[in-house]
Design a protein around this nucleic acid. Structure first.
Lengths: 339, 339
DNA sequence: TTGAAAGCGTTACCAA
DNA sequence: TTGGTAACGCTTTCAA
């Protein structure tokens, strides 16, 4: 098999030094004529820069690292896909790593990821308040999605206006007549932007609604476990003297679990139970009765994230923070069953 | 910020040559004592092999490349996630690239991917009969998922027993009384293992069923376009004198489109139309009326794929071919509406 | 504008 | 068992 051509081969072909060719190919210098000849020669030898050698020499790799809290979460899963596509389209490689729901692993994985000398880092943090981020942010542009990184002020972030999202949902449920609702929130380290429990508690109080908090199992749990957990929680929450008539889940993945649990319990949705999700994940529109959910315009988030991050790598600057407004997508909500 | 320690630093710490340290760390040689001392020193300096330098020197990068036909496809999307997780768990990096539904791009992307000098390659090929694969398979272990690579005999494959799958579905629909069905197949280059159209045509003929072939839009099309396309196709297929009462889609992604189209047309599923999918994608169990589909046990596929590929990289051998049996998951099928 | 040469941090071949 | 030393293929500084 014909060995891949190297810079030297191109240099020989045009009778120039490797250094000259290197510069010319990257358009860093060289006369117009030189650049043309070099490009032509490279094209016809089928030369491609060896990204590994290049990375070693430069100390950077034209790669964007994506550290994902849990790719089992449907929203993160699709987000990672969109991000990769957007970055590939901009001629960047993407290396994805997955902390798999385990905040302790997050640090180890980050460290590993950094050995690839990426140009930038995108994270959906499990523990946004960890201080590992600050260390990374000092070395390269870091952009968080979903939560600001508490101790890494130089990192950018694409965050959701969660207070607005919660308001939207509680207004909706309130208007339908629900007075006792369950709220499903992940058991996670505190976050700056998604202090879900507090947010909901405060808003619910203002409206005179009763809330029952359900903690979600770790995202690594298989669907059956999650469904089981939820089934029990829902059964309990409906057994008391103030039975829950709606459940508000802080992620669509979990809302799907709630739908499964409802089925197990023989509850009709939305007749007996209204289920509200949070990210408007793709096939959510097809779920049986319909899933009401909060939409954040993922396409815009991805566009902005990629734009901010690449700009930051170019300028050597910090990516900014941008906040996205929620939109409520109502599908299959109803008021509580009479009596 | 403290520079990352290098091999040299470790060597200095233990008073040995870098070469010795390199061997010791990899457990390739060295006395038990040396190995221990080296490991200890490395650990306490926080030394990690620089994967880039290592890749340059070895010509291989401890990375597995995944070339995905289209990550917009729900099945491929989740498959890629599972594969990454499985490989990460085995201490491998994964680089994912996406041909985004375009068979012409597949070659360019492959070439780019190879430039990372991966240890192995996993593909869900758009064009399994392309001869780009053979070239790759000569250089490194290649394993295809879903289709064998026609011109790359040395590549392994995890394939589905599609004849069995088709039989399962047509038996099911036949038993329910359907006599005229639509079949949705992708417009793709011919494949060895999924000559979907022919397979279905032959089986349908044997059963005296009429079939109407609907070609799916490219996977890059946005859902709205797909739904529109399908809506038209279904409208037409139900307008004739032998209206279609079921649609068999060769992927769940497309089955979801069919469900949306049915909704647009005001068709009740399964009352007016039974929809059958093909991959048993995760939230399929939650779709409104239920989606009957063919399941291939993705977990087993992933396990086997990763096992075969890693074994091949170790042994320098070719991964084998393995065939998976289908299982029909019936959810919400019904017979054709009377009259 | 061009080029020579010194890295970048490993690995692998040979020799000690 | 251990250690020089030459790759690996590029980028970059400094000189011409």
């Amino acid at each position: 098999m014909p060995k891949r051509p190297t810079l030297q081969d191109v240099a020989d072909a045009v009778g120039l030094a490797p250094a000259t060719v290197s510069y010319a190919l990257r358009g860093e210098r060289g006369s117009a004529d030189t650049v043309d000849r070099v490009r032509a020669a490279a094209a016809d030898l089928g030369y491609q820069i060896d990204p590994i050698a290049s990375a070693l020499a430069r100390g950077r790799s034209r790669t964007i690292a994506v550290l994902c809290g849990s790719t089992r979460d449907l929203w993160q899963q699709s987000l990672v896909g969109e991000l990769s596509r957007a970055l590939n389209a901009r001629d960047r490689y993407v290396v994805v790593a997955d902390a798999d729901g385990n905040p302790e692993r997050e640090e180890a994985i980050l460290r590993q990821l950094l050995t690839q000398r990426p140009d930038g880092l995108l994270v959906t943090p499990l523990d946004p308040m960890s201080d590992i981020w600050e260390q990374a942010a000092r070395t390269l542009p870091v952009l968080a999605l979903g939560d600001r990184l508490g101790h890494a002020p130089s990192a950018g972030a694409m965050v959701f206006d969660n207070p607005a999202g919660v308001t939207l949902v509680l207004d909706h449920l309130g208007a339908l007549g629900h007075r006792s609702i369950a709220v499903a929130v992940p058991t996670r380290p505190t976050t700056l932007d998604r202090p879900a429990e507090l947010l909901v508690a405060a808003e619910a109080r203002r409206r005179g609604m009763a809330i029952t908090v359900v903690h979600t199992p770790p995202p690594t749990a298989d669907p059956a476990t999650t469904t089981g957990h939820l089934t029990e929680a829902l059964r309990a929450a409906r057994a008391g003297h103030d039975p829950v008539t709606a459940i508000f889940c802080f992620s669509d993945s979990f809302a799907f679990g709630a739908l499964r649990a409802a089925r197990t319990l023989g509850l009709s949705v939305p007749g007996d139970l209204t289920v509200v999700g949070y990210e408007n994940v793709t096939p959510g529109d097809l779920t049986g009765p319909g899933l009401t959910t909060v939409d954040w315009d993922d396409a815009a988030v991805v566009e902005a994230a990629v734009g901010y991050l690449l700009e930051a790598t170019r300028a050597g600057a910090s990516p900014g923070v941008r906040r996205f407004a929620p939109r409520l997508v109502v599908r299959g909500s109803s008021g509580p069953a009479p009596g």
